[in-house]
Design a binder for these strands. Sequence first.
DNA 1: TTATTAATTGCACTTCTGTTGCATTGTTTA
DNA 2: TAAACAATGCAACAGAAGTGCAATTAATAA
Lengths: 138, 138
Amino acid sequence: MTEIERKLDSNGIRPTAMRILIYKYMAEKNNALALTDVEQAFLKAERTTLYRTIKTFEEKGIVHQIDDGTGVLKYALCEPGCNCEIDRDLHLHFHCNSCDKTICLTQHKIPHINLPEGFMAEDANLVVKGICDSCSAY
Amino acid sequence: MTEIERKLDSNGIRPTAMRILIYKYMAEKNNALALTDVEQAFLKAERTTLYRTIKTFEEKGIVHQIDDGTGVLKYALCEPGCNCEIDRDLHLHFHCNSCDKTICLTQHKIPHINLPEGFMAEDANLVVKGICDSCSAY
DNA sequence: TTATTAATTGCACTTCTGTTGCATTGTTTA
DNA sequence: TAAACAATGCAACAGAAGTGCAATTAATAA
């Protein structure tokens, strides 16, 4: 049993060949992926399968969904330090306007926000846009 | 010339009957509206017209777009204090999980975020979700 | 005031993303 | 091994965003 299989198994996900491949692919990338990105990587596979695989990953808490404001939902593996199952995705995301990649800044948590009287926060989503480290190097 | 006509005119928008109506409608509401919301209010009008009108408002800087994470783009009039033309929408938005409305917290600016080395911020989007003041009153 | 020009609106249609239903295949377990 | 269940493939749908083009309306110049 490989490490990935163990990971999937311990999260209640049956480690099928497809799922292991998808997990592996997402782990290789260090940025958040859209469904279409995964599609491009697995041209032989069905879109629905990829879709449902990612949704399963999400439900089981090993992937979280990111809305980076591009209009396309992105997904990223929950790295150590990502507690999205517990306190709902409170790290922030960075979207690069140059290379168009979205990455998780797992270490950077959303600061506390003072809301007006009567408002109660349950969740928050912060996306910072700009130029990422790779792009600013040039 | 009414106040709305003057407002449109001074922003380089020809104040047609349709546009005045749409502006008036958006001004009445104190929450951000989706295209479908506006559609419901103007059943006789064409969707495209409403769409392009709002886009025109946005281009001319009297409306800003909000991605509240519901998957549907919302739009709100720029109130005094909204400088979205200048520094890109740096106030935050609140989405109520109960009544499903999204409102601009124009007074509440997004706090400064320290990014890792090499990252440069140009824009930011913060959506807080929870229960709004109206809903929490019950 | 009319003719010309430009902007706005209405209609039809397309694209993209996300999603579901159902039959089929594969996997587990009694 | 057979029954039960989960995963996959295929087809199709839904909703929102967006475009092209013709028709209409408004602005401007003659």
